[in-house]
Amino acid sequence: MSILVKNASNTADLQPPYPYSTWIGYWEGKSGIKLDANTKYNCPAGDCKNACYKKDFDGCHVQKVSDYTHKMYIIPLCSSCNQRTDYFFVDENLLVPAP
């Protein structure tokens, strides 16, 4: 099911917890989904047309628009979508709670 999200603010200084060195690594570890380095994947943002290799994805902090608890989640997004200031749809099953 798709859910409306937005990029969380002021997250650039947040670091993934040990033993993860990247937010993509954290997302892979918690979601159980491993991205192959040699495969192109579509950006999970519903209206994005970018297809990227694993190295081109950012592990992004997002928040559900309809959730006023301000809970953050990690999801892989292309660099362009990591800079978005609007709302966009993603598959809710790809969201991993941020620590």
Rank of each mutant, 00 (worst) to 15 (best):
Ser79Phe: 09
Ser80Cys: 09
Ala51Met: 05
Asp36Gln: 11
His61Lys: 08
Ala37Phe: 03
Cys78Tyr: 04
Gln15Met: 15
Val96Trp: 01
Asn93Tyr: 05
Val5Glu: 10
Met72Arg: 13
Val90Arg: 08
His61Glu: 06
Gly32Asp: 04
Leu77Trp: 06
Asp58Asn: 09
Lys30Asp: 01
His61Gln: 08
Leu94Ala: 11
Gly25Tyr: 07
Ala37Met: 01
Gly46Trp: 02
Gly25Ala: 14
Ala98Tyr: 11
Leu14Asn: 07
Tyr20Leu: 00
Thr22Arg: 02
Asn93Cys: 06
Thr22Lys: 01
Asp56Ser: 09
Glu28Trp: 02
Lys71Trp: 00
Ala51Pro: 00
Val62Asn: 07
Ser2Tyr: 12
Gly29Phe: 10
Ala51Tyr: 01
Asn50Cys: 02
Tyr20Asp: 09
Lys55Ile: 10
Lys30Tyr: 06
Ser21Arg: 14
Ser21Ile: 08
Leu14Pro: 00
Pro97Thr: 14
Gln83Tyr: 02
Ile24Gly: 03
Asp58Thr: 07
Asp86Asn: 12
Asp86Gly: 04
Tyr18Arg: 09
Lys49Trp: 02
His61Asn: 09
Tyr41Met: 04
Pro76Asp: 06
Asp67Met: 07
Glu28Val: 03
Val65Phe: 09
Pro97Ile: 11
Cys81Gly: 01
Tyr68His: 14
Ala12Tyr: 14
Ser79Lys: 14
Lys34His: 06
Gln63Ile: 14
Met1Gly: 13
Ser9Tyr: 05
Ile3Arg: 05
Pro99Lys: 12
Tyr18Leu: 11
Asn50Met: 07
Trp23Arg: 03
Tyr20Ser: 01
Pro76Tyr: 06
Asn82Cys: 12
Val90Gln: 09
Ser31Thr: 03
Asn82Ser: 15
Cys60Ile: 06
Asp91Pro: 05
Asp67Pro: 05
Lys49Gly: 00
Leu94Met: 14
Leu35Gln: 03
Cys81Leu: 03
Cys78Arg: 04
Lys6Gly: 12
Val90Lys: 09
Tyr18Cys: 10
Lys55Phe: 09
Lys6Cys: 15
Ser2Asn: 14
Tyr18Gln: 11
Ile74Pro: 02
Asn10Leu: 13
Gln63Gly: 00
Asn38Tyr: 10
Ile3Asp: 05
Asn82Val: 01
Met1Leu: 11
Pro44Glu: 04
Phe57Asp: 03
Lys40Gly: 00
Asp58Ser: 07
Gly25Leu: 08
Lys71Ser: 15
Lys71Arg: 15
Gly59Ala: 08
Arg84Trp: 10
Phe89Ile: 01
Tyr68Val: 11
Val96His: 02
Val62Ser: 06
Lys71Cys: 12
Asn38Thr: 12
Phe88Met: 09
Tyr73Asn: 05
Cys78Phe: 06
Asp86Ile: 10
Asn10Trp: 03
